[in-house]
Design a protein around this nucleic acid. Sequence first.
DNA 1: TTGAAAGCGATACCAC
DNA 2: GTGGTATCGCTTTCAA
Lengths: 336, 336
Amino acid sequence: MTLEEVARRAKVSPATVSRVLNGTGRVKDVARARVLKAVQELDYHPNIHARTLARGRSRTLGLIVSNLRNPFFLDIFQALEADAHEKGFEVMVANTDYRPEQLLTHVRLMEGRRVAGLAVIVSEMEPTLVAGLSQGRTPVVFYDVGAPAHHCAKIRTDYARGTRRVVEYLHSIGHRRLAFVGHHTALAPLHVREDAFVEAVRDRCGDEGRSAVVAAEDSPSGGLQATRQLFASGYQPTAIVCVNDFMAIGVSKALREMGLAVARDVSIVGCDNISLSDFASPPLTTINIPREKIGHLVSEALMPDGEVSPLWGRETVIDPDLIIRDSTGPPPDARR
Amino acid sequence: MTLEEVARRAKVSPATVSRVLNGTGRVKDVARARVLKAVQELDYHPNIHARTLARGRSRTLGLIVSNLRNPFFLDIFQALEADAHEKGFEVMVANTDYRPEQLLTHVRLMEGRRVAGLAVIVSEMEPTLVAGLSQGRTPVVFYDVGAPAHHCAKIRTDYARGTRRVVEYLHSIGHRRLAFVGHHTALAPLHVREDAFVEAVRDRCGDEGRSAVVAAEDSPSGGLQATRQLFASGYQPTAIVCVNDFMAIGVSKALREMGLAVARDVSIVGCDNISLSDFASPPLTTINIPREKIGHLVSEALMPDGEVSPLWGRETVIDPDLIIRDSTGPPPDARR
DNA sequence: TTGAAAGCGATACCAC
DNA sequence: GTGGTATCGCTTTCAA
C-alpha cells in the first residue's frame, strides 16, 4: 500500500495525494474528496520512514532514562508523552539501567533515528557525550547531568538543598543518629546527595551527630537489602534518609521485618513523592520533585513554540520541598 | 553525515561501505579498515529511516499495552525488550489507557512504522482490528484479546480458573461474604473475571455466600476509592478479591484508613504477583501471572528462530497459581 | 490547482 | 572483491 497506489486509484498525481495528506498547498475539493475516499478504501497508512527520509526530520522525540521501573522516570515519560501527542509528536523511551555504555548506545540509536529532540534524564554520563550532543542542531535536554549549550537546556533539581532540609527537620524533632540509603554511589549526581547528607549531619547535629551510608540497587529490594546490611553493621540509626521513595518502600519493609515500627522506632524519609509513597504504610515523609513540571519543561525545550526555546543555553533549577507525612516522628529516646 | 561521505573519505564506493557496515558480502581487509576508520573519524551513524526504507523491513517491534503504570505491563515490556535487544531488535511501547480508539490509533502508527512484529497486550478491543491485523504478513501476538491466525499467536491466561482457586481458598478458610474490586468492567476480558468471581462464590459458598462488585480506575487510588465505596454501601465483606495487585495496594490502604487490620479483619487477594506485592504491608496473597514467560512467548512469536513460529495459529493458555502470603487469613467470626 | 521529477540515505542486484 | 545504479515511499520544488 503506497501513496502511488492511492494516487492511481484517485486518478491524481502522487504530489496531490501528498498535499491532501499533509494539508500543504491548495487542492480542489473534488480532488481532495477522491483522494480521501481512496485512502479509506485502501486503508492506506503512510510509511513513516519514507516520510521522515523525505522530510529530513522526524516527529519523534527521544527520551533516555536510567530506570523505567522507578516511577519517578515513568512519570516524566508520561508527562512528556502527553505534551508530545498534543503537538503531534511521539516519544521513544530507552533505558540505561545506570550504565554509561548503554547511555552511549542509546544516544547513537536516537541519532540514527534522527529524533526531533532528545531528553537525557539519567544519573550516569559519558564524558564524550556532553560535548558531542550539545554541539548538534537537534534540541537536547539534560537533567542532572551535562551542561547547557546552544540548542541544549539543562534542568537540575537542587537535591543538596532538599537533603539539607530533611536533615534539619529530622534534627529539629530530635534525631541525632542518621543513615543514608542510596544506590549507584559511584555516579556523580548520586554521590553529591550522599555527600550533602553527611555534611548536613555534621553541620546540624554537631558532635552528637552520627551518620552511616549504605547502598544497593535502585528498587524496593535494594532498599530492603541496604537496610538489613545497615543494621547488621551494628549501627542503630533513629532515622533513615533514602535517595528516593522507590528504595524507601523496601526500607520500610526491612524495618517491619526486624520488628521495628516505622516512625515510632525508626523514621524514614524518601524523595520524589511518587504516588506510591502515599500508599506505603505508613505514608512516607518525602521530598517532592515535580515530575510533571519537569516533563513540561522538557517538552518546552524540545518542541519550542517559536524558533528558539527560552530554556536553551541555561540551567533551570528546581527547588524541592519537604512533605511531612507519617513515616517520621521523634526518636524513641526523645520521647523518653 | 551520510554513507556516501564515508565512502568518499574511505575512497571506496557506497556499496562497499554498506557491505562493511552490514557484514554482508566479502570485503578485503584493507578496504574494510579504511571504511571503519572513516566511520570513526566522521562519527557516522546510519540513518535508520533510509535503512528501513531500503530494506523493506525494520528491526523494531511494536508493543501496545493498556497501562504502563501498572507494573504488570512494564514487566512484560522489559522482558520482551531484553529478548529483543539480544536479537538486535528494539521495542516501541505505546499506551492505550484502556481506550479502544487509542488502540486503533496506535496500531495504525505501528503499521506506518512498518514494525517487524506487533504485540497487543490490552484488555480493550476494536472489532475491525482483529481481522485486519491477523491478515497481514507481519507477526502479531494478542494477549487476552483477539484470535489466533496465520501469522498471529494468541496468549491467554486462564483468569477464570485463577479466580475460582482464590474463591475456593477463601471459602476453605471460612470466608462467606466476599467482594470483588475491578476496573473497566465494560471490557470483555475484565468482565469475564468479575463473572467468574460471582459464579464461583455462588457455586462454592452456596446459600450463605454473599458477593458484591465495585470498580474504579486501574491504580492504587482506584483501589482506595473502590473500597471506600464498597464499605459505604453498607456491605461488610470479610475478604476482598482484587483484579490485580496494583489496585490491591490501594485496597489495603483503604482498610487501614478505616481502622481495619488486613488479614485479621478483612482478607485481601491480589493478582499478577508484581514485585511490589511482596512489599505491601502485609505482603499480598496473590495469583502469580508469569510476566517474564509471557514476554518470552511474545518474543518467540515475533522473532521466530526459523521461518515460522510454532506459536502462530494457536492459543497458548497459561494456568496461574495461587501464592499465599500474609494478607489473608480466617475471617473474624470463624476465629470466634 | 496539478503533475513531473529530483532528491532523501540506505540496500542489493548485476556487471566487471 | 568492488563499483554502478535501480529502488524503497514520500516530500517538495518547478513548470505548466
